[in-house]
Simulated scan of single mutants.
Amino acid sequence: MLFSRHEGEFHEAASALKVQCRLSLDEPPSLEEVVREYHSVCSARQQMGLPPAVVEMEDSILIAAMARRGDLVEDGLRLAGELGAVWPKARLPLGWTSADLWLEGLTMKAADPDSLSMVVSGQVVKHKLDKVQEFSAGEGPVR
């Protein structure tokens, strides 16, 4: 039966993931660690000549904005400006007009954390995630 191997394979898969993951899986990473890892991945993709990490860059900034971490938002916008200036236009998403317009729109979204929070709340409802428990580092469920 397929499920008879699940217990062993589950632990093997978890161990492999733990080795590959750059963030700790033993305890929840901090917001700063998550955002910094996004930034690291975005920069690395640029250096390796991979497609621009537009969505990842946006996520890093908007996550920080929703958490009202202006320092991380500023760091993200600075990196986004640097990367946006060197990303090859041919590899950018369809409809991309310019790095300046993208940054301007991203800055406007980041300036409105209440709207970002409403988007997240809507997605929680849409995907029926209201029963998922949040954890705080070193503690049990927050809810």
Rank of each mutant, 00 (worst) to 15 (best):
Gly8Ser: 12
Lys126Leu: 14
Glu82Thr: 01
Ser15Met: 11
Asp100Leu: 09
Gly95Pro: 02
Gln133Pro: 04
Ala110Trp: 02
Val54Gln: 07
Gly122Ala: 12
Ser43Gln: 15
Tyr38Met: 11
Met118Asp: 06
Ser15Gly: 05
Glu134Leu: 10
Ser136Phe: 03
Gln46Ala: 11
Arg36Tyr: 05
Ala137Met: 09
Ser4Lys: 14
Lys18Ser: 07
Lys126Tyr: 13
Ala67Asp: 04
Gly8Met: 05
Leu77Lys: 00
Leu72Ser: 04
Ala13Cys: 06
Glu27Pro: 00
Ser4Glu: 08
Leu2Asp: 04
Val34Pro: 01
Trp102Asp: 07
Glu7Cys: 11
Pro93Thr: 06
Asp26Val: 01
Glu74Asp: 15
Leu106Glu: 00
Ala80Tyr: 00
Gly70Cys: 06
Ser60Leu: 02
Ala67Phe: 10
Ser98Gly: 02
Leu129Met: 14
Pro51Ile: 04
Cys21Gln: 04
Ser60Glu: 02
Leu101Lys: 13
Leu116Ser: 05
Ala13Thr: 12
Asp100Met: 07
Ile61Ser: 03
Leu77Gly: 01
Glu58Thr: 09
Met48Phe: 10
Asp112His: 13
Leu92Trp: 12
Ala16Leu: 15
Leu94Met: 10
Val142Ile: 07
Leu23Gln: 04
Gly8Lys: 15
Gly84His: 03
Asp114Arg: 15
Trp87Phe: 14
Leu106Ser: 01
Trp96Ala: 13
Ala53Ser: 15
Glu32Cys: 08
Lys109Thr: 01
Ala137Gly: 07
Ile63Lys: 10
Lys128Arg: 14
Asp130Lys: 13
Ala99Cys: 04
Arg91Thr: 08
Met108Arg: 15
Leu106Gln: 01
Gly81His: 11
Glu56Thr: 12
His6Tyr: 08
Ser121Tyr: 05
Phe10Thr: 08
Ala16Trp: 08
Gly70Thr: 11
Glu56Tyr: 00
Met57Gln: 13
Ala65Arg: 02
Leu101Asn: 09
Phe3Tyr: 07
Arg91Leu: 14
His6Pro: 00
Ala14Tyr: 03
Lys126Thr: 09
Pro88Lys: 13
Ile63Met: 14
Asp59Gln: 12
Asp130Ala: 12
Gly49Val: 00
Ile61Leu: 03
Leu106Val: 00
Ala137Ile: 09
Met57Tyr: 00
Met57Glu: 09
